[in-house]
C-alpha cells in the first residue's frame, strides 16, 4: 500500500486507518514513520523535488502457531 504524494511535510492521513501521522520536518528518504493509532509502519520516499510518498514498510510478523 502506498499513500498519495504529500506537499505538506508536517502531517498526513494514515493510508491504513485515516489517523493523522506526523512527519518530522527533517525527515529523510527511507525513514520509517509509524501510525500512532494502528501501528502500521511507512517508509518515506522523498523525491528530488521534495514530494513525499508513504510506502508500507515490511515488517516481521510474530508467529505463535507453532
Amino acid at each position: 500500500m502506498s499513500g498519495g504524494e504529500l506537499k505538506d511535510l508536517s502531517e498526513t492521513d494514515c493510508p491504513e486507518c485515516s489517523a493523522k501521522i506526523r512527519i518530522p520536518s527533517d525527515a529523510i528518504d527511507g525513514e520509517i514513520v509509524t501510525c500512532p493509532d494502528c501501528g502500521t509502519g511507512f517508509e518515506l520516499e522523498i523525491s528530488g523535488s521534495g514530494t513525499v510518498t508513504l510506502k508500507q514498510a515490511e515488517s516481521v510478523a510474530e508467529d505463535w502457531g507453532e
Binding site: 486507518c17 485515516s18 493509532d37 494502528c38 501501528g39 502500521t40 509502519g41
Partner: peptide, 18 residues
C-alpha cells in the same frame, strides 16, 4: 471512524505494535 465521530467512549484498537 465515520459512525463514531466524536464518541468519547468508543475507541478503536487494531494496533500492529504494543
Amino acid at each position: 471512524r465515520g459512525f463514531y465521530e466524536g464518541a468519547r467512549f468508543v475507541r478503536f484498537v487494531r494496533d500492529k505494535k504494543g
